[in-house]
């Protein structure tokens, strides 16, 4: 279980970082989204994994609960990352419409382009 989650985080991270290093706006946005998933799941997992132990207090029985704190942090992180994605999308769109070009680099490094 832990291994599954850890490898998933790794794959998401790798995919996100690879896409962020592309030279067009759209893949960078996709990469940021992938990285956001990776980071959110990473943070969530620092509370350790638990199945069927939601942090909803049970008035009638003594049951174990998972760690609520990372969940609260990740919840706001998800919403904020939507705001961040929206701003970046808008920047990318404005830049493309103004320059008719969706490259993210100001300079062209010789040898970097195919």
């Amino acid at each position: 279980m832990e291994l599954l989650l850890a490898t998933a985080v790794g794959v998401l991270t790798a995919s996100g970082i690879y896409l962020i290093m592309r030279k067009r706006t759209f893949p960078v946005i996709l990469g940021l989204s992938q990285l956001t998933y990776a980071v959110n799941v990473f943070l969530f997992a620092t509370g350790r994994l638990a199945i069927n132990q939601p942090p909803i207090l049970n008035k009638y029985a003594e049951v174990p609960y998972t760690d609520p704190l990372p969940q609260a942090l990740v919840l706001t992180a998800i919403v904020i990352s939507f705001g961040m994605t929206a701003v970046i999308v808008m920047l990318a769109l404005s830049a493309y419409l103004s320059s008719r070009n969706d490259r993210i680099d100001l300079t062209e490094e010789p040898g970097d382009d195919a």
Binding site: G10, V11, A14, I17, Y18, L49
Partner: peptide
């Protein structure tokens, strides 16, 4: 080159979170 860097980063983050979780 980018894929290698990203791959190393991925392996690193997977190892880190695995180490935390166990």
């Amino acid at each position: 080159r980018d894929a290698v860097i990203a791959g190393v980063a991925g392996v690193g983050s997977a190892a880190l979170i695995y180490a935390v979780m166990i």
